[in-house]
Design a protein around this nucleic acid. Structure first.
Length: 560
RNA sequence: GGCCCAUUAGUCAAACGGCUAAGACGUCGCCCUCUCACGGCGAAGAUAUGGGUUCGAUUCCCGUAUGGGUCACCA
């Protein structure tokens, strides 16, 4: 077989040599040890929680080392592409503080454009580049075409290949595939010319020289030492539309774009031997690989499953809707990514996670379960350290989008709203009421609506309650400081036969009708409509005398 | 089914082959001159399993089990 001639037949339009292409992609001028990483999504939907993991790692490793983090759009499957998905991905990532040094970016007109010297960064725009290397492989006898008729191709596109194989016996299918493959390798120049004359489409397959009985020693930066069986499968390099498969695009792009570390999910591990083969065939130096474990969820049987698109918590937009601040999600991710992150954070509570010395060696190699408890805890801690002004800003922004009625209440008087969020904030032991912005409404909605959520427990006499409220109103003055205010409540307690001191009460509970905590509760329910609320003195101060009196008076009336 | 990866409490996890197997979240209890929240103290809870190597194994090796991934002209 004259491979050179075959290459000319298959790729008549390709005139460039691989060497000429290489000169357009000069190595970057970066400091020693700088890492070049990328996020390479296919624009088929939203950003997935699991996708944020490798992305965060890539971003950290690149920026921590003075390297480059770039975005490459892997739009090689037109069938699955979703309109506007790429723009959505970029915006969502930016929301989570993931910014790219180069690659596909959103231009001023809102569409995707390139930034950087290693583009195009959309694979669909790189067709001619792939073809140069495809032609080289053919010319060296390392790849060959497999033709189909257009009718066969249509039939093929109509089937769900995966479901089809699953329904069959695996052995049967594999031996069948193997036989087809060996047959296809025997194609002659005459057959190629004949097919081309009829305009039959072809895929380009690699000519695999591996023996799966032989193992390739390989070191993954996360998984450690692995033994990979050699690849003996003539996998597809170029699809019949001339667009490369992931495998081929990965080799060509990551080589030309100078990626030093490929970070991706461990579902790629089984195809690693294909990639090793491709890099060898093409004469490219293999990048370092980091295969990270998947995020899991529990299915209805209690088994771990890969967190998939439809699951709650998979779509990053869910977190926005639920009211999680991006910083909280990022920090939760850091706790999962590096086992010593929490320790570091405790020692450096004021520092941003971007200052954390991210360490590949501290990464877990098994899949972890998503844990909302932990996320909430992380989140509460972060929000508790924010200023009241910041909380007001973010809660209002969230509510205006997701709960407009509440948002309008918050936005009406920002100073008032801020004074509410200032309760118990600032000291060494701040309140931790909010894990999400959505928690704000149940926590402090009573300031705005005065709704009566909780009723008085039935074991208290209405007369006592009414008397307590009336007595308090008679002495209440907004000018009182906290001590004076509390003294008045104690006085009310004494007057209605309740203990004004908890220790006194606990020592002899039968001597009293109730205690000071009960009296406070009478007032709390009247003023806040709830059994549990933040500091009642602060609440009354913020509500003001008029509103406080109105609410208590209205409760007295209702008790009749 | 073949191949690959993994396995320490409910979850996330630490432990050059060497003290009683850390810590965090969650759960429960007690304390904190008004509830809640915060904080403090405490409790329960783990090396999947069987062999081997070793004075000694969570750690190294082999088998078993379980879980995960993958086997497309998808990425």
């Amino acid at each position: 077989m004259d491979y050179q001639k075959l290459a000319e037949l298959l790729f008549p339009a390709v005139t460039e040599t691989p060497e000429e292409v290489e000169t357009k992609f000069q190595p970057r001028n970066l400091p020693e040890g700088a890492k070049v990483t990328r996020f390479a999504p296919s624009p088929t939907g939203f950003v997935h929680f699991g996708g944020l993991f490798p992305t965060t790692i890539g971003e950290r490793l690149a920026h921590q080392s003075g390297g480059v983090f770039y975005l490459r759009i892997e739009d090689t499957d037109a069938k699955r592409e979703v309109d506007g998905a790429a723009e959505g991905l970029i915006r969502t990532l930016a929301h989570y503080g993931i910014n790219f040094d180069e690659g596909a970016v959103i231009g001023e007109d809102g569409t995707i454009c390139d930034k950087g010297a290693y583009g195009p960064y959309k694979q669909s725009m790189r067709g001619p580049i792939y073809h140069v290397f495809a032609k080289k492989l053919v010319a060296e006898g390392k790849a060959y075409p497999v033709f189909t008729t257009k009718e066969e191709l249509e039939a093929l596109n109509a089937t769900d290949k995966k479901a089809e194989i699953k329904a069959k016996d695996w052995h049967e299918d594999q031996s069948e595939q193997r036989e087809k493959m060996l047959q296809a390798r025997q194609i002659t120049l005459e057959e190629v010319e004949e097919n081309l004359k009829f305009g039959n489409p072809f895929v380009l397959r690699i000519l695999a020289d591996g023996d799966p009985e032989k193992k390739i020693p390989f070191t993954d930066l996360i998984k450690g030492k692995l033994e990979i069986p050699e690849n003996d499968e003539d996998f597809v390099l170029l699809k019949s539309d001339g667009i490369p498969t992931y495998h081929f695009a990965h080799a060509v792009d990551d080589h030309l774009m100078g990626t030093t570390h490929v970070i991706r999910g461990e579902e790629w591990l089984p195809s690693l031997s294909k990639h090793i083969m491709l890099f060898r065939y093409l004469g490219f130096r293999l990048p370092k690989y980091m295969h990270i474990a998947q995020i899991m969820r529990l299915d209805e049987n209690g088994n771990k499953k890969k967190l998939s698109k439809r699951d709650m918590g998979a779509n990053m937009d869910d977190y926005s809707r639920m009211g999680y601040a991006p910083a909280c999600v990022c920090e939760y991710i850091m706790t999962l990514l590096n086992s010593n992150y929490e320790e570091w954070h405790m020692q450096n509570p004021e520092k941003s996670y971007t200052e954390f010395p991210f360490n590949i060696k501290k990464m877990s190699n098994s899949g972890c379960l998503f844990d909302f408890n932990k996320l909430n805890d992380v989140s509460k801690n972060i929000i508790s350290r924010m200023s009241a002004a910041e909380v007001t800003r973010q809660v209002t922004e969230w509510a205006l989008q997701y709960d407009p009625e509440f948002g309008a209440q918050l936005a009406k008087d920002p100073a008032f709203t801020e004074s509410i969020f200032a309760i118990g904030r600032g000291g060494k032991k701040p309140r931790k009421d909010l894990a999400t912005w959505a928690d704000a409404k149940p926590y402090m909605g009573f300031f705005f609506d005065g709704k009566q959520e909780d009723a008085y427990p039935e074991n208290f006499a209405k007369a006592d309650i009414k008397q307590a409220l009336t007595l308090f109103l008679a002495t209440y003055s907004p000018a009182d400081d906290m001590n004076a205010w509390f003294e008045k409540i104690k006085e009310v307690a004494r007057q209605i036969g309740y203990a004004d001191d908890m220790k006194l009460y606990k020592a002899n509970p039968d001597a009293f009708k109730g205690n000071i905590a009960d009296v406070s509760m009478f007032l709390r329910v009247a003023v806040t409509g709830k059994l549990n609320a933040p500091d009642l003195y602060a609440v009354m101060q913020i509500l003001g005398e008029c509103c406080t009196r109105n609410r208590i008076e209205s409760m007295i009336e209702r008790l009749d």
